[in-house]
């Protein structure tokens, strides 16, 4: 009789490949891949397609590695929050040690490989992103301050800058603007989520704005950040990565986003509970479209530029 026949329930070390892949937060990784790719393609310097592919892959691996390290550190609160209970560690398919080992190994691997594939600026930015997400956001800010999402959002905003750095080897106003769009978009996006995932963060003891300052204040914060985001997002249209297509998209998207934020701000909890947080859920869905469409518009301008049609020239 082998050890296998004694116990066939999931044991530490016997997880499938999919469980390890789930540690890398594939959905977050898809956003990282998309924004990094747009940053790379919008840059004025052409990149060899193989180098571009490899670089985006290593950026994605680096993003995934930081996701694994986040799951290692947050395993205790992931067990409490409904939204995260099915993740491999809370579900008992993998141990914290597995996540730490995979995350740490892939972090080093991704940074070294990105350096070899592209340049030191891109690799340095990736290393800083992983450090920022794991140490600054996950270990420090997340459980300490209601501004966790605001400052921690920087980690998710770096990929387009890294993509740009892969092509140009540096940082410029355009890459900083792409960073700022994602950075300013993150708070309203997550606060809308926190409004309708009401008990999760409170139960886990995470000081989200909804828990520390109340839901009315959170609604006000969503509106303020949405209003601050609009001029940055629209202003990007007048840089080298923008153009008429981007401007049209940005004006429409920001008008919709501001309208949604005003509706959220005007509502109170009684109204929200009565319709099952419909407006907040819609705003959250719109925020995903908002970011995707902005970067798609930048990509469209870069694509049109190949035929001499992009930008304002």
């Amino acid at each position: 009789m082998s050890d296998a026949s004694l116990n066939t329930t999931t044991q530490d070390g016997d997880a499938g490949f999919g469980d390890f892949f789930a540690l890398l937060k594939p959905r977050v990784m898809s956003l990282v891949v998309f924004t990094a790719l747009v940053g790379l393609l919008a840059a004025p310097v052409p990149v060899n397609p193989i180098v571009a592919f490899a670089s985006i892959l290593f950026i994605a691996v680096g993003g995934g590695a930081s996701g694994a390290l986040n799951m290692w550190w947050d395993a205790d609160i992931d067990r409490i929050m409904k939204r995260t209970q099915s993740r491999p560690i809370p579900a008992g398919r993998l141990s914290e040690g597995d996540a730490l080992g995979l995350g740490a190994t892939l972090s080093v691997f991704a940074v070294v490989m990105l350096f070899l594939a592209s340049n030191i600026v891109a690799a340095g930015l990736l290393a800083f992103t992983i450090f920022f997400y794991v140490v600054i956001y996950t270990m420090w800010l997340k459980r300490w301050t209601p501004q966790n999402i605001v400052i921690g959002g920087a980690a998710g905003a770096f990929p387009p800058m890294i993509g740009w750095a892969v092509a140009t080897g540096g940082i410029s106003i355009e890459s900083v603007l792409m960073f700022t769009i994602v950075f300013m978009w993150t708070p309203p996006h997550f606060w809308a989520l926190a409004l309708f995932m009401k008990s999760d963060y409170r139960d886990a003891g995470v000081p989200m704005l909804t828990v520390t300052h109340g839901r009315t204040s959170t609604r006000k914060h969503i509106l303020v950040y949405t209003l601050l985001l609009a001029p940055i997002a629209i202003g990007t249209a007048f840089t080298s990565i923008g153009g008429p297509v981007y401007l049209a998209a940005a004006v429409v998207l920001n008008a919709l986003f501001i309208k949604g934020a005003i509706t959220i701000w005007r509502r109170d909890e009684t109204q929200a509970e009565a319709d099952g947080y419909r407006t907040e859920k819609r705003f959250f869905a719109l925020s995903l479209v908002y970011l995707f469409a902005h970067f798609l518009a930048i990509l469209a301008e870069a694509g049109l530029g190949q035929f001499g049609l992009g930008g304002w020239a």
Partner: peptide
């Protein structure tokens, strides 16, 4: 199931 998981990995 354990063998299947190991195989997939």
């Amino acid at each position: 199931a354990l063998h299947k998981r190991r195989k997939s990995r």
